[in-house]
Amino acid sequence: MSASFHSGSQPPLLYDGYRSTLRRAPSKPLIRLPAALSDLREPVHGWWPIGETDNDLTRQHAEEPQGQRIIVTGQVLDEDARPVTGALVEIWQANAGGRYRHVKDDHPAPLDPHFTGAGRTITDNDGRYEFTTIKPGAYPWRNHDNAWRPAHIHFSLFGSTFQTRLVTQMYFPDDPMFDYDPMFQSIRDDRARQRLVSRFDLAVTRPEWALGFSFDIVLRGDSATPFEDRV
């Protein structure tokens, strides 16, 4: 057991650079629950089935969306590098202009009538998933003066128990906005930061069709150190 080994690999709840944490982060310490009492390892089920175009965000409308077509694929693993099979992977993202299909997004970039920006799939027997989509644009937010989020795709993973639940964001290689982004900066450990950055992958790239990016995701193991101890 070496919790300190992973120190800084998860973001803290309170992070000054990200203003919304100031009134939302709990102020009292979280209470440690022994694994035997937590109940979070019991299997959870009950979501609806996956549709045929749920993992291809370019085929959900009559025409194709604007933007750079990309393939995002990878393997979902636990901390011992074992594939996590049958995990529900959900993604959502802005369109090529950096606008979300959401009533509260007032960024003055056009909506694309041919792009919703949401996808779902289930990992296969090797823990692998794949989405076809378009590269999302960067977008401004009001966290601080002239604040922009690096281009990203939101990921939600449900590995069948609450214990391994994860919501995260996937970034693209060499984004110049990393240095200015409090979300990215809230993670202190450099290996953990790099784990959130997808890799351009020529082997995934499909000739004369789409660029490929690889993004592996590591879920905590069933008996692993709590996130709070890795901040």
Binding site: P11, E79, L196, V218
Partner: peptide, 11 residues
């Protein structure tokens, strides 16, 4: 062991 993927806000 592998470094677990960091959590990020749901936004």
């Amino acid at each position: 062991t592998l470094v677990a993927t960091a959590s990020q806000t749901v936004g």
